Amino acid sequence: MSVKLIAVDMDGTFLNDNKEYNRARFAELYAQMKEQGIRFVVASGNQYFQLISFFPEIAHEISFVADNGGWVVSEEKDTFNGELTKQQFNTVIDHLLTLPHVDIIACGKRNGYTLKSYDDAFITMARSYYHRLELVENFSNLDDIFFKFALNLPDSLLDDTMTSLSEILDGVMVPVTSGHGSIDLILPGIHKANGLRILQEKWGIDDSEVVTFGDGGNDIEMLRQAKYGFAMANAPEKIKQIASYQAGHCNQQGVLDVIEKVLKKEAPFNA
Rank of each mutant, 00 (worst) to 15 (best):
M1W: 07
V3F: 02
L5R: 03
D9K: 10
F14H: 05
L15C: 06
N16S: 12
K19R: 07
F26D: 08
E28Q: 08
E35L: 10
E35P: 00
V42C: 05
A43Q: 02
S44P: 07
S44C: 05
N46L: 08
L51M: 07
F54N: 00
F55N: 00
F55C: 04
P56L: 08
I58C: 03
S63A: 15
V72Y: 01
V72W: 01
V72H: 00
E75G: 09
N81Y: 04
L84Q: 00
K86P: 05
K86F: 09
Q87L: 11
Q87K: 11
F89P: 03
V92S: 07
V92W: 07
L97I: 01
V102C: 12
D103L: 07
A106N: 14
G108Q: 01
K109V: 04
S117R: 12
S117P: 02
Y118A: 00
Y118T: 00
F122G: 01
F122I: 09
F122W: 01
M125W: 10
A126Y: 04
R127W: 05
Y130E: 03
V136I: 15
S140N: 07
L142I: 15
L151G: 05
D155W: 07
L157K: 15
L157T: 11
L158V: 13
M162N: 10
T163Q: 15
S164E: 13
S164G: 07
S166Q: 15
G171K: 09
G171N: 13
V174T: 14
V176W: 03
I183N: 02
I183P: 01
I186K: 03
G189Y: 10
I190G: 02
W203N: 15
V210I: 14
F213W: 08
G214L: 11
E221F: 14
E221V: 11
M222K: 12
K227F: 06
Y228C: 00
A235D: 02
P236W: 11
K238Q: 13
K238E: 13
I242D: 08
G254N: 06
V258F: 09
V262Q: 01
L263P: 03
K265E: 13
A267Y: 10
F269K: 04
A271D: 14
